[in-house]
């Protein structure tokens, strides 16, 4: 989300707060790491209470982009962040990290059972960089935890022709059926994407 559309959702005090935060982030982008904890990073933590939790993802990712946060900074913000901050780091990865260096953060998030983190972890960055085994498990994790498969970026392309994924989905469906439980509708959607359903 860009600055204009965020501003439309904020009151005047929050807009002024965000002005200041973005100016501090831009300053840090020009002169990286000249203080122990840059002021914009304190604002990154406090964004929810100043701009509303419903705007926190948008404000935090904007701050990360304005500060041009590198992998080292993103990793520290993730590791030292509350769940909402970790989520924002994950959402910002595709814009800030071209290579696979930030994959450990995605893998960490996929080990949690916190659906806010799992959902943020399966975006375009995961689609571009997760290896096939980890990506298949990420898809399965979404089915297990109730994260909509619509959150999985580029699912059609990655699933297409993936016979191993199709097998895993079919096994999961059998396990559910054997237990007398329903099979999630999303499972069929992904199975169709593989083009391997039998």
């Amino acid at each position: 989300m860009n600055r204009e559309s965020i501003d439309g959702r904020l009151d005047s005090a929050a807009v002024a707060w965000l002005d200041q935060a973005l100016a501090e982030a831009a300053e840090a982008a020009d002169e990286p790491d000249n203080v122990a904890v840059p002021r914009w990073q304190l604002r990154f933590a406090a964004a929810g209470r100043h701009c509303g939790q419903e705007n926190a993802d948008a404000v935090r990712t904007l701050l990360l982009r304005r500060a041009a946060a590198d992998v080292g900074t993103l990793t520290r913000l993730y590791q030292q962040g509350a769940a909402a901050e970790r989520r924002a780091v994950l959402l910002a990865l595709p814009d800030l990290v071209p290579g696979p260096e930030a994959l450990p953060l995605v893998e960490d998030a996929l080990r949690t059972n916190d659906t806010r983190l799992v959902e943020a972890a399966v975006g375009p960055y995961a689609a571009g960089h997760l290896d096939p085994h980890a990506w298949r498990h990420a898809v399965l994790k979404c089915l297990f935890t109730g994260v909509p498969v619509a959150a999985v970026a580029d699912a059609e392309r990655r699933a297409h022709g993936d016979a191993e994924l199709a097998r895993m989905l079919a096994d999961y469906a059998s396990e559910r059926t054997a237990a007398g439980r329903s099979v999630p509708a999303d499972l069929h959607r992904v199975l169709i994407m593989t083009g391997e359903e039998s």
Binding site: N113, F144, R176, R181
Partner: peptide, 12 residues
């Protein structure tokens, strides 16, 4: 809760 599959445990 997600039917038969508690979100809280991620089904694990």
């Amino acid at each position: 809760l997600h039917e038969g599959n508690s979100i809280l445990r991620g089904g694990e």
